[in-house]
Design a binder for these strands. Structure first.
Lengths: 153, 153
DNA sequence: TACGTTTGTGGGTAGAAGTGGGTAAATAAC
DNA sequence: GTTATTTACCCACTTCTACCCACAAACGTA
């Protein structure tokens, strides 16, 4: 999907402050394409976390929804349920974004967060949930190896 | 996979210093393509070691992950589990990279390291682990010969 | 063999990054 | 229109990282 040049990697353990702000790691800020103008669109992940799409990547996500036939009720529902939780956030001069309260709640986020690079997007996790997520896939290493084989990694 | 011109060979016994830095051997630095700008992406190997991909090679690795359909949970997990341990590192004017603490731990690295050229990537091993790894494949020389046959070496 | 250059190792510190908080400005509520 | 609440902007401090220096050992050349 991505042709915007973003390249987010790594995992950072930061804190959510009393004002609902979290720091975007400096390396990720440097990775963000200039056209996004320090701006992400924050929304719910398909997994129980918050996703930050760079503004430029979000344009591509939007295009996919636009291309969905909205005459079908299920498509409208899918679109509505994805887009209504989305909100643009811009990081300030200290590199922090203020996360919408609804997303903080959806992500089950307390004081500690794990910020995970996913190449063309960023995920913000409650550390405990991330660990549970990893545990859920334990025992499926052969399936993971099949994917590694498939993409010749 | 690689068409970036990198060509890392050899094995070097160096040290990891108190600040978590390790020297990239001079010959390997000379082998690194200029477009990588002295930068690798360090991440977990499939084997218990650290891998350094040249930045240019990492772009190709990324492209494979981007091409994976992220609508599937298993693909998301696969991507997350690979990419969240990855981090760009740039060697300084003395040729050293600072390795992320998480990777040092994953690789079981103490004071001594073995730096191994793997053509388009570099592996950083705890010497004892590398030895154990070699021992694991002892006795399978006929299988190795079959591979040599297959690629007409 | 002698000497100059390059390489690997150890360490100090200036500058960058993350965290916590105050308040002016903008927005919402009455 | 006024008041209350929220958001955006700014500051200060602590910790971590990037940059620089020095030196010994190894290597290459005359």
């Amino acid at each position: 999907m991505d042709t915007t040049g973003n390249s987010f990697t790594g995992s950072y353990s930061y804190t959510l402050d009393a004002k609902g702000r979290v720091n975007i790691p400096a390396k990720m800020r440097k990775s963000l394409d200039p056209a996004s103008d320090s701006t992400f669109v924050a929304t719910r992940g398909s997994d129980p976390c918050i996703i930050l799409y760079p503004a430029t990547v979000w344009k591509q996500v939007e295009a996919k929804f636009i291309a969905l036939n909205k005459g079908k009720a299920l498509n409208r529902h899918f679109t509505r349920n994805f887009v209504r939780h989305a909100e643009a956030v811009q990081y300030d001069s200290q590199g922090r974004v203020a996360l919408p309260a609804g997303l903080i709640e959806f992500g089950g986020i307390g004081k500690n967060v794990e910020i995970v690079g996913m190449i063309d997007r960023i995920e913000i996790w409650d550390p405990q949930r991330l660990q549970e997520m990893e545990s859920r896939f334990a025992g499926r290493e052969d399936e993971l190896e099949a994917i590694a084989n498939e993409i010749d990694l």
